[in-house]
Every structure is written in structure tokens, then in C-alpha cells.
Write a protein that binds this DNA or RNA. Sequence first.
DNA 1: TTGTACGCGTTATCAG
DNA 2: CTGATAACGCGTACAA
Lengths: 333, 333
Amino acid sequence: MSNIRDVARLAGVSVATVSRALSAPEKVSEESLSKVQDAIAQVGYRPNMLARNFRSTRSYAVVVLVPDIANPFYSLFIRALEDRAQQKGYAVLLGDTRGTSEREQEYIRRVETRLADGIIQLRPSSEKSQNTIPAGIACVNACGCELTTGPSIRIDNRAAARTMVDYLISLGHRRIGVISGLKDNPHTIDRLEGYKEALASAGIAYDKDLIAEGDFTMWSGLNSAFQFCNMKNRPTAIFSMNDEMAIGAMQTLKSQGIRVPEDMSVTGFDDIAYAKYCDPSLTTISQPAEEMGKMAMDMLLRIIEGEPLSQTECVLPTEFIIRKSTGPAPYQK
Amino acid sequence: MSNIRDVARLAGVSVATVSRALSAPEKVSEESLSKVQDAIAQVGYRPNMLARNFRSTRSYAVVVLVPDIANPFYSLFIRALEDRAQQKGYAVLLGDTRGTSEREQEYIRRVETRLADGIIQLRPSSEKSQNTIPAGIACVNACGCELTTGPSIRIDNRAAARTMVDYLISLGHRRIGVISGLKDNPHTIDRLEGYKEALASAGIAYDKDLIAEGDFTMWSGLNSAFQFCNMKNRPTAIFSMNDEMAIGAMQTLKSQGIRVPEDMSVTGFDDIAYAKYCDPSLTTISQPAEEMGKMAMDMLLRIIEGEPLSQTECVLPTEFIIRKSTGPAPYQK
DNA sequence: TTGTACGCGTTATCAG
DNA sequence: CTGATAACGCGTACAA
């Protein structure tokens, strides 16, 4: 509970000297410095960062807005973000929005009231999905899409999806079901685009009955898969827009006696930790979450500190990972 | 960028009145109130919380120390903690320690320098595993064990483990392998105690060769399981100290042609989301993470605000969940 | 190199 | 009910 004045008094110097001893030791004589250090140790002085932040009108904290922290895909991002922030002396304020814009508003308000210096957005935003973050607030989207406005880090979702579907087609699949995210989710849109491109270039007609709308949860994957099981002319492969839904879908298929990949191939997206361990292990697209988080944080801090940005949008490469959930299309009568 | 003085000037009142209009509107006349509100709207005033916090020597933030945010078990806790903190007007500072006490120190320092008002510890701590949190810092362990000192929320790990092993024994298993966490981890110690108790009361001798040390990761479960596969007299059941290791272990068993549960039963601990969806679904112990997080946060905020604690240690009930990874012991020659 | 003095935006006290 | 003013702890011109 001691303050800088106590230290100054004990050391026999002024508060200014103590302040300098802490933030710019080279501007203080050896003698004063050691006297100050002794005094600090003696009274157990800890600078009051609340006061320091107040003075500098900076909180040295950054809000990370995440739709759901329990989603393992976001966990990877957050770990990278936190790591980087810590390195640079910033704190991460966790903002689990639970998908509601109401909660999002509360966190935005934290920036407006100076409790945070900026925002990392972990939700794909575009012009359509109303971007609720007011202009004038430092913000980087670490998980963007093609239509994202403002600074962002992203992958090429369309190209990645296309790669995946091209691969399925190369295995002989012609009827390829899709388990998508919510219809208006920008990732859904980009990835669906890639799916359509792949079909088109193989001369396969797009059939909207092959699109099942999920919401990126395992549970929705489980349900969507039933839709395909019950079709008279069911698909021979399922392109799921994330790993969790793919895993849920495989569960359903197994329960219906459909073998993966012999009877039906299944693919995921994201490459969460579990994708490698599920049964069969999942063919998927790996996102460089670590790298993306790091870059997003760097970009945000640069904006906050008023440094120039070399680029405002950054597209990182994905990795296509073939595992055991995919195989040749079964013979169709 | 406008401050309370600007508002006061525009509204034609004093700064004190503006301050009161915001924090105690009932102490201000209707007339002044509306003048103030108009002025606030007009200049787009946002109170500077940095100044407010400085004034009140409180940051209204709480550090959540977590060994690894990517661990799905902790995610559930964090979600509950964040939810509760948000409700009560506190922010959550994410403190991913990556298991290092160095990082832990940095976050403790944040409390000492007033950047946070207290700490939620999501690591089982005991007298032995040196508790690095200095006295005088408000701290609650949301994930305690029997030896945890200070305020804590926990489950009865020993009893839960015993319930699980009793169940395996009731299925006819006599040789029950254990995949433990690190040896000195308090959870490991408590759960191992429960294991031993169950064996003892069934008159089964404890065999230390049946204990494989893991580290709570899927990978370590995968490895540990090999140890059992290769034994001449291999166990008929594996009691894994968390779900991830159990899932890893099942992967190994499958790869070795050992069927679960026909040839070998496997059990987990925690009941993470995947436990229900893996194949076969996992018999496990469910911890009330939501409730635990909520209670831990409530307890911490009570300490911070100087309110009396009705109890300093709280033990919550677990749920024993039987799924498909366990079955009768196979016939042994 | 060092010290003095002021300001940052807010709340609390106290007198009106 | 209202207003003037003194804190809160720190950084930093400016003067010495």
C-alpha cells in the first residue's frame, strides 16, 4: 500500500527521481538509483499501474471477442493471442459473446470507456452480417472472410473448400453432401462458393437438396447426417464445414450401419486436436491458428500504438490433410 | 474524448452533479438530470473508467490462471467464470500459464500492481506443490483437492475415483490398469487414493505395474495404453484419470485389435463434450464445471468486496455416467 | 542530475 | 439538492 512518495522520502530523493529510476534508470545517478532500489525493497513498493494507466490514458488491455470459448477451434486462437499479448505487455480481456450482439456491445463499451485499447474479433464479419463495431475503435478480425472490411487475418476459405471437394471428386464421388454452418455465416458462404466451383469445373450439377444447414456444433452434425442417411439416392461423401460437425456426422453414420469411408467418405475443416484421434481419423483442412493469432495481435497493437500497417489484409495458407475418413466412391448400381 | 467537465459546462451544472447523475440519479433533481442527459448525448460523453478505477483503487478485473486454455475441460470452467464475472461487472483477464510458474508470477504481479483485484486458480494446488500465490492476495481455487489450502471449490476426487473403480470391480474386473496424471499432481494423488481404497475393500492387491503415468493429454493416453497392451498378463480394464487420455487409450487399443469394451473396458474422468461422441462413448465422471465456476467467482468477488464468507471450502457432487466403453470382464483362462 | 509543481478525470466531503 | 474543492498516484515540463 505504499506509494511513490513513501519511497522518495525513505530514499531521501524526490518523487520525480523515483519515477525516473523506474522508467528511465539511465537518467539517474548510480547513487540515487541504489538508494531508490533499497527503499523500494524495504517498503515493498509496487507501482500502482492503475495510476500509470490513467496518466497515460491507456489500459494496456485488449478485448478478445469470441463466440464460444468452449469451441476447441477458438481455443487455439486464443492461446496464440494471449501469448503474444503477454509478450508485448498487454493483457487479454476475455469476451465470450455467446453469439449475442448484446454481450458484444458490452465489450465494445469497455473500449469506449478506456478499459481496453482495442478488440480482436474472432467471428467472421462482413458487410452483411452487421458489423457492430463502431468506427474509431481499433479492431482486427483474426478470422475473416472475403467480405470482411477493415484489418483482418484470414485464410482463403473458398480455395480450401474447393481443394477438398476437388479431392473428393477425384476419388470418384459425384453426389457430395454438405453440412454447412448457418446460412448467413460468412465462412459458410465462402466455403459453399468453393464447393460450387469444384462441382462446376467437374461438370456436376449443383443440387440444393444436398445441403444440410448446421451450426458448427457436433450436435448439429449428428442431426444433419440423418438427413442424408434417409435419402433415396444418398450421397457417397459428406463435406462438413468444420470438424466437430464431421465427427457428429460420423457418429450418426456408424449408428446407421454406414461404414466410413467404405460406404461414405466424410471430411472436416479446421483440424482441431481431436480430428487426428477420432475414428476414423478425419481428412480435413488445417488452419494456421497459431500464426493467425500472432499476426492478428501484432496488427492490432500496431494500430493501437499508431504505427503504420504494411498491409491491412493478410491471407495465410492452409494445409490439406488426408487421413482415413475418405476413400474411393463405392460402386453405384 | 470529452470529459465530465465538458458535460457539466454544457449542462450548466457542476461536475459533482454530473457525477451524481450517473452514479446516484435519485440524488439529483429531475431538471438537472435531464439537462445532464442531454449534454451527455450531445457531446457523446463516455465516463473514463480508467480514472474511476484509479479513484476507487480497484480494477474490477480478475485474473483467471489456467494451465492450458486449449484443454476442453478448462474451457467449460472459463466460460462459467467469465459469465459470472460479466454479470457482476468484472472483467476476466486471461492467464494461460502454460504450466510455468514464471508466467504465473507475471499474472500475480498484475494483482500486486492493482491491475487485477484477485485470482481464480484453475490448477489443483496443495501444500506440497508449492503454492506460489502470496498471502494477502484474494484468491480462490476453483479446482481444488483435499490438501488445497485457502478458499476453494472442489469435488471429492477420491470418492469419485472409488465409485468408478468399484463399478469396474462389480463388472468382474480384477486387474485394473490406471493411466494417471503426473505423479505429484494433487488430482492424481486423490484419485489414486480412491483407486486403492476400492481395490482394498474388494481384497485385490495393489500392483504398481498397473499404474502408467500420463500427463492428462490425449497423446500421453495413447502412449500409456501401449504399455498395457504389451503386458503378458494385461489388465481387463483401464481407469484413466481424464477423458482425453481415455480417448487416446481407446485409439491405441483399437489399433492393436483390442475391442472396447468386449476385450477391455475403459473409463474416463471429467465428461468433456467428446466423451459422449467418441466411439464407444465413454463411461466417466461428470464434474459440475458450470456450477463450480459460478461458485468460485462468487466466492472471490465476496472476498474482494470484503463480505464475509459463509464457508471457505465447498465440495460439490459429481455424477457417475455409464456409457458404452465399459462392460463385463472377459473370461480369463 | 535533481526537485518543484501541475495536471490527468473522477468521486467524496463539506458547506451552502 | 447543489457547487467548490481536495484528494487519488503517477509522469513530466520546467526550473534550478
